[in-house]
Nucleic acid binder design. Structure first.
Length: 218
DNA sequence: ACCCAGGTGGCCC
DNA sequence: GGGCCACATGGG
């Protein structure tokens, strides 16, 4: 049986269903994705909470707000000299491109949307794919540092380039957005729990799969 | 006092 | 193409 599938089954059995991304609306997912870079979810949650409390968690409001005002609310998410401006810039793009309406925005071929997202400042492959998958429901597999860490530790990845890792997983899983969401979420949860930079292997659910577990692969 | 975090863009060879 | 580096806050 395919290894990737087995990894998923074990993680799922160990950690249970994840139901990511935590957000009330697709727009909130987008804001979260733009803020999430190189910080922890708690900081993003705080930033989004601040925006929400200020009535700013809205495409038009954010598109019109002062960068300084946005910065005040999202400061805790770090990188405050880049993120606020990029957030506003992205909102302006959504207005120009789809009148701020995400329904139509996501009703195009995946590759087209992805190219459009990647053209925005501050949107790289992971952010673009997170938006596609978790806000738009498009079946693209999201790769992050954890995916690469676990994949490498399992001895699975011939290349660690983003597109290669993505293609690797997409080739080994049915093309299903909900499945992609769960697999990605489980990889993150597992990396946070046990697959740290210095791994703790004794009760790892991937024990006889991971090279760190028994010294054997498979 | 470190090191790390669900990246990205710029620069260098 | 691959390999560094800055970016900034807050937590362990």
């Amino acid at each position: 049986m395919a290894l990737v599938r087995r990894v998923y089954d074990r993680l799922r059995a160990h950690y249970g269903p994840q139901a990511w991304w935590p957000a009330d609306t697709p727009f909130e997912v987008i804001v979260g994705a733009l803020l999430m870079q190189q910080t922890s979810w708690g900081r993003v949650e705080e930033a989004i909470g601040n925006l929400k409390a200020a009535g700013l968690l809205d495409v038009r409001r954010l598109a019109r707000a002062d960068v300084a005002t946005i910065r005040r609310h999202v400061r805790a998410a770090g990188l405050y000299r880049t993120k606020p401006a990029r957030l506003r810039s992205f909102c302006r793009h959504l207005l120009a491109r789809a009148d701020g309406d995400l329904g139509p925005y996501f009703e195009r071929p995946t590759a087209e949307i992805r190219a459009d997202l990647l053209a925005q400042r501050g949107v790289g492959p992971e952010t673009a794919d997170s938006i596609l998958l978790y806000a738009g429901g498009h079946p693209v597999f999201v790769v992050d540092a954890y995916t690469v860490r676990i994949g490498t530790r399992l001895g699975l990845l011939p290349s660690t380039r983003y597109d290669d890792v993505q293609a690797f997983f997409e080739a080994r899983l049915p093309r299903d957005a909900d499945l992609y969401k769960e697999v990605h979420a489980l990889l993150v949860v597992h990396a946070k729990a046990l697959c740290r930079p210095r791994p703790r292997c004794p009760d790892c659910p991937l024990l006889r799969i991971c090279a760190y577990g028994t010294g054997r692969k498979r």
